[in-house]
């Protein structure tokens, strides 16, 4: 029974982090129908930025919550800059090209970013301080630490709050309204006075900030990172987005949670070697049974 509860919590943790990344895929897809394969790299860069600045800031005497929040803000800003710039360089010039071109550009960008961090940071695993675990006031969670560590609990709560904020932005703000309008009918959105370039940039920035938060949280949870983490995490988050229905925001969260649970139960009851296998079996299965994903709209194409 303990194992079951433990697996549930770690599955929820993993799923929440996948969700943060998957949201970036699904939002960008919803707006410009592009699979942004470089998104996993933004998450990796977010994790490295968080690591570097947590070391710098703690050497300046920052600690506790102040340290976490400053690192969060800096990593978010950094990733936002990357997201904004990559869109301008790699995707915007190709916006009216055939759909394959920006996809290839995305893959190229992903390889570039991976290797650029590899050059700067080597291919070794680098230790990441568990900023959340260091918080003293979380001591009251100690009695249940054999089921769920304070870090895991904080990650789940942080993700839940972030998603609530995101859903507020999308449902209630003017930016969110513009995003939904552009996703449904870009020409009509322009005719209503929406500057599409700005909405696309905003979407990339929003997705990148979420990915950077995911990077910070995964660092705290795994306590080591390397320049490769973006590749597999990106692929998994993409799987989650497709599972839930790409373009659908609740779908991305649902897909990510299903994936997180499935992977952890496989690892716990079968063998951890199989968790990636199960993830991609799920992807294949959904593509065969319901290609539009669990919450996705069936795709109809005008001929």
């Amino acid at each position: 029974m303990n194992l079951f509860v433990e697996l549930c919590f770690s599955g929820l943790t993993k799923g929440s982090i996948y969700a943060l990344i998957a949201l970036g895929y699904t939002m960008v897809y919803g707006i410009i129908a592009l699979i942004n394969f470089a998104h996993g790299e933004i998450y990796m860069i977010g994790a490295f930025t968080a690591l570097i600045f947590s070391l710098i800031l703690s050497s300046w005497g920052f600690s506790g919550l102040g340290l976490i929040f400053s690192v969060m803000v800096i990593a978010g800003l950094y990733a936002a800059m990357y997201g904004y710039t990559t869109e301008k360089i790699a995707y915007k010039p190709l916006r009216s090209s055939p759909r394959l071109s920006p996809l290839i550009s995305a893959i190229g960008l992903s390889i570039f970013l991976q290797n650029y961090v590899l050059l700067a940071q080597t291919s070794n695993d680098i230790l990441f301080p568990d900023l959340i675990g260091q918080l003293d006031f979380l001591g009251f969670l100690e009695p249940i630490a054999h089921l769920a560590t304070p870090t895991q609990i904080c990650i789940v709560i942080t993700c839940a709050v972030t998603m609530a904020v995101l859903s507020f932005i999308i449902k209630k703000t003017k930016m969110g309204l513009a995003m939904r309008a552009v996703a449904q009918n870009p020409d009509m959105a322009r005719l209503s006075g929406v500057n599409i370039d700005r909405v696309i940039s905003g979407t990339f920035i929003l997705g990148s900030v979420l990915a950077a938060l995911g990077g910070l949280l995964i660092g705290c949870s795994m306590q080591q990172i390397n320049s490769n983490i973006g590749f597999l995490a990106g692929l998994k988050a993409f799987t989650a987005a497709v599972l839930g229905g790409i373009g659908s925001i609740p779908g991305a969260v649902l897909g990510a949670l299903i994936l997180g649970f499935a992977e952890n139960f496989t690892a716990g009851y079968l063998a951890s070697d199989y968790e990636d296998v199960v993830a991609f079996i799920l992807l294949t299965a959904i593509l065969i049974i319901r290609p539009e994903g669990i919450l996705g709209q069936p795709i109809s194409r005008k001929v």
Partner: peptide, 19 residues
């Protein structure tokens, strides 16, 4: 017509006054 199909009537109207 090009109504935004997944926006509510009220949101569609707000889009008209977006600027």
């Amino acid at each position: 017509r090009h109504i935004f199909p997944a926006l509510t009537v009220s949101e569609n109207l707000m889009m008209g006054a977006f600027h």
